[in-house]
Design a protein around this nucleic acid. Structure first.
Length: 578
DNA sequence: GCCGTTTTCGGCCCGACTGTTTTCAGTCG
């Protein structure tokens, strides 16, 4: 959201360039700052407008980096970055995207051959010039050639919705081997981040080689294969396998699930207790002179399960979705972890479409699909006409009333309760694109922003929440992952307006949206808002997207009571004012 | 460059894999 991703990319470029120049420690500092800027829920331009001190409130952003962020917001560039670009005039972002090519390699090849971009790199490799450079050889040159094409096309993180099914297929493939005792995803995929850099899979086995051998038989290109780890590329997604002995399953799963920041908090907690935690277990190092003298120093006190790892640190189990260093370890230590919502808690869906607007199926088919899925209730909420609706997609006011009659007729014979409804558009001024008397006829009014999705949307969204007929604020930012950042807004102000007016804030479970995000969900709940997990389904097969919404809610520490769509139909009807 | 119940200086995670090397550097996660 906002320009945070843009600033984060610049800080990462600073890190790469400093690393190419062999500068110590600063690259790490810039990378950590970049990560936190990217994940920060307040827009950097908002913070910069308040002053440098406000920018420094971002974790791992100190005086120097904050000054550069302010400089960038005010002038559009960072002088020091420009100097670094002059010093090493290469497209370092593109070049380091090539698997196996890092900042040092970029510097070496520029120095020796004047390589500045992917075209230069490819030409040098094809001409056989790279293997002549000191420190390089024929194999490195061939690897570069093999990986350039992939680097040209893939520059984005993968959608969770694409990576998750691939992970399931890989795990099924592995389970067919007798050598596999346990298999699980790890990394950001297991934490259900909306996008992931790769797919991480962990296996427990007594026969590591057999598992690696089975893994590389998966229909994909092998990147590397050793005795305890291997990597593939399938459907353009990198899949990393880690293989461990069963005794180290819990410690390895915890370590490789991350996040890195969560693990650092755990490690520091361990040190306070004269314990050492790593991917091999928890070790009591109270009687050890040098705890850093090896991987398995001291008496091993845990490692076989994640729960035992946490228990050794005097903590209850913390769900993967919460492991983002947002205070979860402190909450666990205080016995204040939320009782998280899970997939079985959801009873209905208040945002879906039919062929009346841009859906694929009829009202009757969507209702039948909901029955089959096991929902207790749904709302038919087709697009209304208005800003953002192109090609005559939206349903006008008269047709909405006609459709409501059809919905009531279908509902009469259905096993699920069916609410009439609409997805109205929120104009930039906060007004809603359907007449009030028509909205009053409908059971469930979802209002969503679809156009003019830049800048600050706080007033616009607050106005929609305050509209007496609006029940759900649909995909509040309007973001599309990897496509557009969506509206920036003051989440506390919108959440408070929502709470005061009995409007639910949606967690749109469509894998392209996941909007609100987990960090916004957490702050919305803290501000007193009620959430609604909806799929925005355009066909019955998409009811299954609800799991992405549930795990996003878990990333925001949501309990069942925080979510409208966990309630029984009568209670939802009451919330809708029926 | 950042950070601090070891606090204004001194430390910053580290192991696996690959390819180039005869003991290590770079990359990656």
């Amino acid at each position: 959201m906002s320009r945070n991703a843009e600033v984060a990319a610049l800080l990462e470029e600073m890190a790469d360039r400093l690393e190419a120049l062999d500068v110590d420690y600063k690259p790490r500092a810039y990378r950590q700052a970049a990560e936190n800027v990217r994940g920060h829920t307040v827009a950097v331009e908002t913070l910069a407008a308040e002053g440098q001190d406000a920018v420094e409130e971002i974790d791992r952003v100190g005086e120097a980096i904050a000054a550069k962020i302010v400089e960038y917001v005010e002038t559009g560039s960072i002088a020091e970055l420009e100097e670094l670009r002059e010093q090493l005039p290469v497209d370092i972002e593109a070049l380091t995207r090539v698997e196996g090519v890092g900042p040092k390699t970029v510097a070496d090849l520029y120095e020796a051959l004047g390589v500045q971009d992917l075209d230069d790199l490819e030409a040098a490799a094809e001409a056989g010039e790279i293997q002549e450079v000191k420190g390089f050889g024929a194999k490195t040159e061939q690897n570069i050639l093999d990986n350039i094409a992939f680097a040209r096309e893939s520059h984005e993180r993968q959608l969770l919705g694409d990576a998750q099914p691939l992970a399931e297929r890989v795990m099924d493939h592995l389970r067919a081997s007798d050598a596999v005792e346990r298999v699980e995803t790890a990394g950001s995929l297991r934490r259900w981040r909306p996008t992931v850099g790769d797919v991480d899979v962990l296996v427990a086995t007594d026969d590591r080689q057999a598992v690696v051998d089975r893994f590389v038989e998966f229909d994909a290109e092998t990147i590397e294969a050793g005795t305890s780890k291997a990597s593939l590329r399938a459907n353009g997604i990198r899949v990393d396998l880690r293989v461990v002995v069963p005794d180290e399953w819990g410690s390895a799963l915890l370590y490789f699930t991350g996040s890195k920041d969560h693990n650092i908090v755990l490690r520091n907690r361990a040190i306070e207790r004269e314990l050492k935690v790593n991917e091999y277990g928890v070790f009591d190092v109270s009687g050890v002179d040098d705890p850093d003298s090896g991987q398995r120093v001291g008496e091993r006190v845990a490692g076989e399960t994640e729960a035992a790892m946490y228990a050794a640190l005097e903590l209850p189990y913390i769900a993967p979705e919460m492991r983002e260093d947002r205070g979860e370890v402190a909450a666990a230590a205080a016995g204040e972890l939320p009782d998280l919502i899970d997939e079985t808690d959801v009873r209905g869906d208040l945002h879906l479409h039919t062929e009346w607007s841009d859906g694929d199926d009829s009202v009757a088919e969507m209702v039948a699909g909901a029955e089959e899925f096991g929902h207790d209730y749904i709302a038919i909420s087709d697009h209304a006409t208005g800003p953002g609706m192109v090609g005559g997609v939206g349903v006008d006011d008269d047709a909405l009333l006609e459709q409501a009659e059809e919905v009531r007729a279908v509902a009469a014979d259905a096993d699920v309760r069916v609410f009439t409804g609409v997805e109205a558009n929120i104009a930039p001024d906060g007004s809603v694109s359907v007449a009030d008397d028509v909205l009053a006829e409908l059971d469930c009014v979802v209002a969503s922003p679809h156009a003019s999705l830049d800048g600050d949307g706080t007033d616009r969204l607050v106005a929609a929440c305050e509209h007496p007929e609006v029940n759900v604020l649909g995909h509040p930012t309007g973001r599309l992952l990897n496509q557009r950042p969506g509206l920036d807004f003051d989440v506390e102000a919108v959440a408070e307006a929502a709470a005061a007016n009995d409007t639910a804030l949606e967690i749109n479970a469509n894998p392209h949206r996941l909007d609100l995000s987990g960090s916004y969900v957490k702050r919305a709940i803290e501000a007193g808002a009620t959430l609604a997990i909806d799929t925005d389904a355009h066909t019955p097969a998409s009811y299954g997207f609800v799991r992405f919404g549930v795990h996003t809610a878990r990333r925001g520490w949501a309990e069942p009571a925080d979510v409208l769509t966990t309630r029984e139909a009568d209670d939802v009807a009451a919330f809708l004012g029926l």
